[in-house]
Write a protein that binds this DNA or RNA. Sequence first.
RNA 1: GGGCCCGUGGUCUAGCGGUUAUGACACCUCGCUUACACCGAGUUGAUCGUGGGUUCAAUUCCCACCGGGCCCA
Length: 822
Amino acid sequence: MPAPRLSDKRWSIDLEKRIQEEHFADEAKYSARYGFNPNSGKEIFVIDTPPPYPSGTWHIGAVAQYSMIDVIARSQRLIGKEVKFPWGVDRNGINVEFTVEKNTGRKMKTYDRAEFLELCAETIEEFTQSMRDTARRVGLSMDYANEYLTDSPDYRKVTQAIFTELFKQGTIVEDLRPNIYDPVEGTTIADAEVQRLQRMTRLIDVKWQTEDGEELIISTTRPELICACGIVVVHPDDKRYQHLVGKKAMLPLPVDGREVSVEIATHPSVKSEFGSGILMVCSFGDQNDVTVFRELGLAPFQAIDLDGCMTSIAGPFTGMKVKEARDAAIEYLDANGKIDKIVEKEQEVPVSERGKNPVEIILLKEWYVRQTHIQDRISELAEDIEFHPPRNKQFLQDWMDNISIDWPISRRRWYHTEIPVWYADDGAKIIVPPAGIYVQPWCQDPPAGSEVLDRETREILGNFDKLKDSLGEIIGEEKVFDTWMDSSNSNLFVSGYLNDMDTFEKAFPTAIRPQGKEIVRTWLYYTLLKSALLLDKPGFKHVWIDGLGMDPWGRKMSKSLGNGIDADSVLECGAGGRTGSWRVRGPDKSVQLKANKIGSECFRLWKACDAQVGDDFHINPEEIESKYFGVLTKLFNVARFASQFDAPANLDTTPDNLPVEDRWILAEFANTMEKAENAWRGLDIYNATQALKTFGTGILPSHWLEMAKSRLYDGDQEAAWTVHRIVRDFMAALSPVCPFFTHHISSTLYDSSAVDVREFPERTPSDDELRSLTSAIEEFNGNTWRSKKEQGISLNAPVEGIVIPDELSEFTSILTRMHKLE
RNA sequence: GGGCCCGUGGUCUAGCGGUUAUGACACCUCGCUUACACCGAGUUGAUCGUGGGUUCAAUUCCCACCGGGCCCA
């Protein structure tokens, strides 16, 4: 037997790692292979890769999602597109600030700002490195040489330029409004960042009195806010209290610098069955209070300051933290006989997603992106976007239907992009930098070329360089942007906005936004908002929303459930003879999962085959191995078998004397390749991979290879041509899913790599009549094998009495030879 | 409370109005056959969550319910 050119006996994780190392080692070669050339003349396909946020470990579900984004990138290259697959890292944000605070045991605001930023930059860089490694390990064919970081001047200057443009346009405004505020972290947060937690709270029934002495019971969980009470309301249909409407209620706590009584009015938002059915409305206990104040045109009180302490209107409670003030207020009310009863009750408390601190709603001057006016237009623009799967568009629509307030974008934190403005001494003028320069107003003066604008009307008053001396002392803005303000530019940035407008013209709307469904209301929504405001265009041609990686029982993986599986352990499973084992807490008991070998190729194949886009997927290493490693083994061995026969030089020209069985399998192969190509064009990973897997592990080895074997051993050139043509093209078609596997096989056998194919392989000759015989062939082979089995003879033993059906008469000689029919 | 998704052989999964309801893994039986024993071949195994409805026809469409999950309030 001639030696196979594939020398390894089987596919292994060590082999996989060897190929990977070699693949990434030569940077020039890597860039030539996967880099982006906007001037190639090919159709540009820009992928707005989600820039991961570096935090110790990368969730295996996310790694699986990224591997599918890579499949999209590779399959688009395969069908001839010029793909830009950028590698970006999202590094702005409160998370790294928390990490530094935790590591050093010091709160951010006790640091010098520059010193703190330095610590954040160091910390985030450490985390970033491990993500770069994992990205390569799972085979992501990204443009690492042109890595972008959202905390770099290059990226931040784009965010700042977009801000300035929207400000001039009037869609970004500065205003004093009630804001959701985290007093512990000292920053405003957006609606999308609020979470609700169940907590035990005291519900206090406080005795109030009208000015003429009638007693009212009002239930509240926030008695410290009585000083900010603007009105007392009852439901308009509540018969019990109609006589009170129009009267005044005396505040049951002492206050300072404000009226001691408030009006009693009606409002439809009151729930009559809750407590006594009378509600005090304070600025601001919750979102409903905000609504009532706005609707009734009441002037809000500032009861809580930026440190989370009571302001002077709280009288005796001034300066106390909210929680202390609450205790003191209860004590005071109790001492004065103004408490009817106190009930401990479970209640949902709004907290900040990042810090888990109870949030307050307070009046603050902040920056906002106006968004309520443009919802209809975004919906209209979104009609031109193709969603994969279509149903996941609903997540976006649901969120948009619920938007009622503008997006507050300013934050009182540090490791974020700075808001690029300065204020003139008189407070009436504002200075903005020219586009293309990253500025830090908290420590820098406005750069040359800045403009001076009227703070209210945004009218351009002139060039800063000329007006400089008339502006008095210039104060830099200290606030920064919400991180989504940065990340929602990612598609603009990667498509070349501001940096390469020629490419941008060709590349926008960005070809595809792949992402998880959990950030539709933030990342996707804010990006579409930006595209609509800035360019009045849809941000994308395709939006690809994948499901989430779940534990083997279909539950979300989380630290608290103890059901997490680490990505690296799966990718390294089988390397150097080590096996993988995972202790995972199930719904009933802990389960020990074990696997011997997985690696990136098997992992990717599993994700591609096992879950349709958009479906949540269960991650069970045992299952990944048992269902998919065998597929790789099978395909590897088909190729290894082929590799012992020399490949004819002219694989692109079909010989004209092919026997019927070769024409038959080539027709079947053509059909498989057509399915695969159509699926790749339609971004349908599942069906492309399924078609290839079915052919490559089924009909090809089981039926055709068995027929062709003896011819191959006889040195038959047509059989060699057929098997090599199929193996070569098959590897190209599968290369998006298993790049290293197919690269190894194709470069060993054909001296050219499957991952370099930039045009989907030409179809082999098709023949519907021959294809119609496929089931007959399968049935005949099956029957023959069964018959041998029933006779107790081995499959390669001669057999008598088998009759080939008429429809397969063309195959008589090959079937006779294959089964040794006598 | 609202939205979305999912309940198909032991396990996972395909199906998207008419199929002998895919396929994989596991089980069982047989076979060391010049690619593959980490293999091959052949069996066994499903009232398609429950109850209604639409239809000549329902796993597939509609409604209700039950169960699981995710997101949001």
